[in-house]
Design a binder for these strands. Structure first.
Length: 832
RNA sequence: GCCCAGGUGGCGGAAUUGGUAGACGCGCAGGUUUCAGGUACCUGUGGCAGCAAUGUCGUGGAAGUUCGAGUCUUCUCCUGGGCACCA
């Protein structure tokens, strides 16, 4: 009994594919294209099985579409800028460029050993000037179109990484990478005007019908559109400086305007800051608000607090009424106008505030079936629809009607206008780090901030930097930042901030279309290949990379690079790979190989101390539940690892890595190999027809073969890879029972074996090539088209009908497919 | 708090439109091979009762629609994920 020798086989076929350049994509507008892309990795050092699961799915799609006749583009590259390289430099004295290059080399080697069908001629690494020079040019174009601007603003400061984070990178008040509590700082920052496309990015989500609903929903929430109105409140009486001041508030409930009991300003509202200049108590209150904003616990337990400024504002619809103006800790400067009006009766937070400061609670929306004379709001604000009352000209209207009526009135009187507010903020892209793309601008004492002229690009990172001081090494570099102003020649300094690394990943899919072009990308190539037909990656990028890329594509369109809105037509978000975790009594994590199990299932470490098996968690170095890819490939080969990653769980769900699971696949691999290398019946030469007259058993095999082809094709189309694998195994099991000397046995067996081989091709490409060759074919399987099921053969001649009485199965009856209904009924009724 | 997704054997998971629940695999049990263990191969495997044919119970829980519900409806519990002083 021979074992499949994956070592020789995998190396052999990888070399053949490379020699024949099987996977190099050619721009050919006469052929239908298919662009498959997996989110490119950060070159952290080693590939882990989570990466491999992602790329195995992408490779399956790429090879499948290729077999279907598409001109497939399936590239790979490296998201090569980022902090770990810089941290390695600080810790180990190795230059980020060297560290990154070494990691890329070893990860490329690992990918190639997996046999992925990448077009390596298009490989890119974002840290090369040949790559990032193009995004410097893009940035200059963005500046010209006012899509990029610099502004002093409150930013999220990560005290561990010593850099700024975008809102999207702050998760529960902590840096998305470092996990450190984020602080607020006022800094001059470069921003990209993503908010220009707020509405478009939101509207277009509806058209992304091959995206997971979940991701679209998350982006929708992130953009956070809300319709409302801006309302102007004039200040009453004597004003500071005697000026005619107004406070502009934003509200989504203009219908409740008559219920207004107070105005509240953000602590950073210009008026609040102005008042604080002459009011030490207010200044102290504002300082207090700033202090508590940062700690997580403070946000959790923060009570709604306000400071009464003593100022009053005139009600815009009823000049006889005035409301007090507070500065309040719960009003955000960044959302709406930084000021609100409070309607305690119909907003819970406003109600809490009003109760605390003894403000009036005036109900203006009457719930259905309530008596206007007796209705009162207790501890719970009434937020639903009803009939307006206590509201002048609005009385009797429903909430939507009142919103419209107030909007119209405000616009007539000039006291406000209807508007739309978004949660989405502009994207701050400045990072105070070395290992990123330099922002191509120069600070000139005479001309101000000026762009680097295009002919001076790229602005390259200096190689001779030191990491032994605090802050940004670029800033400390002795010469790099000192330049003459390109416009007036005055001694000037370069911008030392670099781009957020999401800048690079926002357009790499375009670069792949013409990866060696002297420009960012050739328009014709990009318009042929784009959009990406199938994008595959982790759901953790649902609002980061995926939103930035959608924005970037639109920004590039506005700058005339390409006529395209959406970069990714199809998106699939795969689950994580998890593994059991192990902890000892001290709570220290152990590697799986450090844990042994006795016959009773008790776990212990090498010294016999007891070990507790923890929950399944995403593989991570800190929890030591990682599985080394090299060891797996060394023991079982790439194909076995690939099939395991496809077979055990639905691709969108998390997968638990188990050693016994991969051993099961390894047994299957050997069974397959035996099935073709030692066939149970003499096989006819390839290409022969299967005889028409067959025994019922052989007919059943043929039927299963064609049913399997149809079902697997459908399953792959729908990303049900685990089911596709199960179907192929079912057919394999059936073929193992086939045997005999009659010539038609061999013919049926060959048909089945060839189907199994071709269906497995995109999953286990090396083994499938080996099987295909063993079956006597000269051409490579990679060039063989996808099999087609014969619909006639796949159809059942006999159907089994269940007979149920009161929902309980009592008998089953077999009928020919075209049996008449009454015939079946009669037979059923004839049963005892 | 709000919004999603999901609860099916010991485990991962299958189950077109409501129509034979548990495909495929892991594990487990018995067997063959082996000096032995492991490997490999074969057979069996939802629970309960029974030698068996078979009966009966079974898709988180409760109710409902239906000849018939894992699938549809309502309520509820649990798990995972996302968002959150958003005016």
């Amino acid at each position: 009994m021979s074992r499949y020798s994956f070592r020789e086989s995998e190396a052999k076929w990888q070399q053949r594919w490379r020699e024949r350049r099987s996977f190099e994509a050619q721009h050919d507008p006469t052929r239908p294209k298919y662009y498959v892309l997996e989110m490119f990795p950060y070159p952290s050092g080693k590939l882990h099985v989570g990466h491999v699961r992602n790329y195995t799915m992408g490779d399956l799609v790429a090879r499948y579409r290729r077999a279907q006749g598409y001109n497939v583009l399936h590239p790979m590259g490296w998201d090569a800028f980022g902090l770990p390289a810089e941290n390695a430099a600080i810790a180990g004295g190795i230059h980020p460029a060297v560290w990154t290059a070494e990691n890329i080399a070893s990860m490329r080697e690992q990918l190639q050993r997996m046999g992925f069908a990448y077009d390596w001629s298009r490989e890119v690494a974002t840290c090369h000037p040949e790559y990032y020079r193009h995004e410097q040019k893009m940035f200059l174009d963005f500046l010209a179109k006012d899509l990029a601007y610099r502004r002093e603003s409150w930013v999220n400061w990560d005290p561990v990484e010593n850099t700024v984070l975008a809102n999207e990178q702050v998760i529960e008040g902590r840096g998305w990478r470092s996990g450190a509590l984020v602080e607020k700082r006022l800094l001059a920052q470069w921003n990209l005007r993503i908010t220009r496309y707020s509405d478009e990015l939101l509207e277009a989500l509806a058209g992304l019908d091959r995206w997971p609903e979940r991701v679209r929903l998350m982006q929708e929430k992130w953009i956070g559109r809300s319709e409302g109105a801006r309302v102007h409140f004039a200040l009453a009486g004597q004003q500071p400086g005697g000026r005619d001041e107004k406070i502009e508030v934003f509200t989504t409930r203009p219908d409740t305007l008559y219920g207004a009991a107070f105005l509240a300003l953000s602590p950073h509202h210009p008026l609040a800051e102005e008042l604080a200049a002459n009011d030490p108590a207010l200044a102290e209150f504002i300082a207090e608000c700033d202090r508590m904003g940062t700690s997580e616990e403070a946000i959790e337990t923060a009570e709604k607090r306000g400071y009464a400024t003593g100022i009053e504002a005139i009600h815009p619809l009823d000049p006889s009424r005035v409301v007090p103006v507070y500065v309040a800790n719960f009003v955000l400067m960044e959302y709406g106008t930084g000021a609100i009006f409070g309607c305690p009766a119909h907003d819970q937070r406003d109600l809490d505030f009003a109760r605390k400061y003894a403000l009036p609670v005036i109900p203006v929306v009457l719930p259905p079936k309530e008596d206007p004379a007796s209705f009162a709001v207790g501890d719970t604000a009434y937020v639903d629809d009803g009939t307006l009352f206590n509201s002048g000209f609005l009385d009797g209207l429903s909430v939507p009607e009142a919103k419209r009526a107030v909007g119209e009135r405000l616009e007539q009187t000039g006291a406000g206008q209807r508007t739309i507010a978004y949660r989405l903020r502009d994207w701050g892209v400045s990072r105070q780090r070395y290992w990123g793309c330099p922002i191509p601008v120069i600070h000139c004492p005479d001309c101000g901030i000026v762009p680097v002229p295009e002919e001076d690009l790229p602005v390259e990172l200096p190689k001779d930097v030191s990491f032994d001081g605090p802050g940004n090494p670029l800033d400390r570099h002795p010469t790099w930042k000192h330049v003459a102003c390109p416009y007036c020649n005055s001694p000037s300094t370069r911008e030392t901030d670099t781009f957020d690394t999401f800048f690079e990943s926002s357009w790499y899919f375009l670069r792949f279309c013409s990866a060696r072009a002297p420009i960012a990308f050739e328009r014709a190539a990009a318009e042929y290949w784009m959009p990406v037909d199938q994008y595959i990656g982790g759901v953790e990028h649902a609002v980061l990379h995926l939103l930035y890329s959608r924005f970037f594509t639109r920004a590039l369109k506005e700058c005339g690079y390409i006529d395209l809105d959406e970069p990714f037509a199809g998106l699939f978000t795969q689950g994580m790979v998890c593994h059991q975790t192990y902890q000892n009594a001290e709570g220290e994590w152990l590697f799986p190989e450090e844990v042994t199990s006795d016959p009773a299932g008790r776990l212990s470490d090498a010294n016999g101390r007891p070990i507790v098996a923890g929950r399944l968690e995403k593989m991570s170095k800190s929890k030591k539940n990682v599985v080394g890819l090299d060891a797996i490939v060394e023991t079982y080969g790439a194909d076995t690892a690939r099939l395991y990653l496809l077979s055990d769980s639905p691709p969108e769900r998390d997968l638990e890595w188990t050693d016994t699971g991969i051993e099961g696949i390894w047994r299957y691999v050997n069974r397959l190999w035996r099935l073709v290398s030692e066939p149970a019946a003499p096989l006819p030469s390839p290409g022969g027809a299967v005889p028409g007259e067959l025994s019922p058993a052989l007919t059943a095999i043929r039927r299963l073969t064609h049913k399997t082809i149809a079902a697997v094709t459908d399953d792959i189309d729908k990303f049900r890879f685990n089911r596709a694998v199960a179907r192929i195994r079912e057919l394999t099991n059936a073929l193992e029972d086939v045997g005999g000397d009659a010539p038609e046995v061999g013919a049926v067996l060959r048909e089945g074996l060839e189907a199994v081989t071709r269906l497995l091709g995109p999953m286990m490409p090396h083994l499938a090539e080996e099987m295909w060759q063993c079956l006597g074919h000269d051409e490579m399987l990679v060039d063989v088209p996808w099999p087609k099921a014969d619909a006639e053969l796949a159809r059942d001649e006999q159907v089994t009908i269940a007979v149920q009485v009161n929902g309980k199965l009592r008998a089953t009856l077999d009928f020919p497919r075209d049996a008449a209904a009454n015939e079946v009924e009669e037979a059923a009724l004839a049963l005892p």
